[in-house]
Deep mutational scan, measured.
Amino acid sequence: LKGVVVAGGVLAGAVAVASFFLRNKRR
Results as ranks from 00 to 15, higher is better:
residue 26 R to N: 04
residue 7 A to R: 11
residue 18 A to M: 14
residue 27 R to T: 07
residue 4 V to Q: 14
residue 5 V to K: 08
residue 17 V to P: 00
residue 18 A to C: 11
residue 1 L to C: 04
residue 10 V to I: 02
residue 4 V to W: 04
residue 12 A to W: 11
residue 26 R to F: 08
residue 2 K to Q: 02
residue 6 V to Y: 10
residue 13 G to C: 05
residue 25 K to T: 08
residue 4 V to F: 05
residue 23 R to V: 04
residue 4 V to R: 08
residue 25 K to C: 06
residue 10 V to L: 11
residue 11 L to Y: 15
residue 19 S to K: 13
residue 23 R to T: 12
residue 22 L to P: 03
residue 4 V to A: 11
residue 19 S to D: 15
residue 10 V to R: 14
residue 19 S to R: 10
residue 26 R to Y: 02
residue 11 L to A: 00
residue 3 G to P: 06
residue 10 V to C: 12
residue 1 L to Y: 02
residue 24 N to L: 10
residue 18 A to R: 12
residue 7 A to G: 11
residue 9 G to T: 13
residue 18 A to E: 01
residue 14 A to R: 13
residue 17 V to F: 03
residue 15 V to P: 00
residue 3 G to R: 12
residue 20 F to W: 01
residue 1 L to H: 10
residue 9 G to L: 02
residue 6 V to P: 08
residue 8 G to P: 12
residue 26 R to A: 03
residue 22 L to M: 04
residue 20 F to V: 10
residue 6 V to T: 00
residue 2 K to Y: 02
residue 23 R to W: 03
residue 12 A to Q: 08
residue 18 A to K: 09
residue 7 A to W: 01
residue 8 G to Q: 13
residue 24 N to A: 08
residue 5 V to A: 05
residue 9 G to E: 15
residue 12 A to E: 13
residue 21 F to L: 10
residue 22 L to Y: 10
residue 12 A to V: 09
residue 15 V to T: 08
residue 19 S to I: 03
residue 16 A to W: 07
residue 4 V to Y: 13
residue 2 K to P: 06
residue 6 V to C: 09
residue 2 K to S: 03
residue 16 A to D: 01
residue 11 L to H: 03
residue 19 S to M: 08
residue 7 A to T: 12
residue 16 A to L: 01
residue 27 R to Q: 06
residue 1 L to D: 08
residue 12 A to N: 07
residue 9 G to S: 12
residue 1 L to G: 02
residue 12 A to D: 02
residue 22 L to F: 04
residue 24 N to K: 15
residue 23 R to F: 02
residue 3 G to F: 14
residue 13 G to Q: 15
residue 25 K to P: 15
residue 19 S to T: 10
residue 4 V to H: 09
residue 5 V to N: 10
residue 10 V to A: 13
residue 22 L to R: 14
residue 22 L to C: 07
residue 17 V to D: 00
residue 9 G to C: 10
residue 25 K to W: 07
residue 16 A to E: 03
residue 22 L to Q: 04
residue 10 V to T: 14
residue 15 V to K: 13
residue 1 L to R: 08
residue 23 R to L: 04
residue 24 N to T: 06
residue 10 V to M: 14
residue 17 V to K: 06
residue 8 G to W: 12
residue 27 R to M: 04
residue 12 A to C: 05
residue 10 V to K: 15
residue 7 A to V: 10
residue 21 F to I: 09
residue 23 R to A: 06
residue 2 K to D: 06
residue 13 G to K: 09
residue 14 A to C: 07
residue 3 G to W: 10
residue 22 L to T: 07
residue 13 G to D: 12
residue 21 F to K: 09
residue 20 F to S: 12
residue 24 N to Y: 15
residue 17 V to I: 10
residue 9 G to F: 14
residue 23 R to C: 03
residue 21 F to W: 12
residue 9 G to N: 14
residue 24 N to C: 05
residue 5 V to C: 08
residue 16 A to S: 03
residue 1 L to W: 03
residue 10 V to N: 15
residue 14 A to K: 11
residue 5 V to Q: 14
residue 26 R to L: 00
residue 15 V to R: 13
residue 22 L to H: 14
residue 27 R to W: 08
residue 24 N to H: 15
residue 8 G to I: 15
residue 21 F to C: 01
residue 16 A to M: 03
residue 23 R to D: 04
residue 12 A to M: 14
residue 15 V to I: 07
residue 26 R to P: 02
residue 23 R to G: 06
residue 12 A to L: 12
residue 5 V to W: 01
residue 25 K to G: 06
residue 23 R to S: 07
residue 17 V to N: 01
residue 14 A to G: 01
residue 11 L to R: 05
residue 16 A to F: 13
residue 8 G to Y: 14
residue 13 G to T: 03
residue 22 L to N: 03
residue 18 A to P: 00
residue 15 V to E: 01
residue 4 V to E: 00
residue 16 A to H: 14
residue 15 V to M: 10
residue 6 V to H: 12
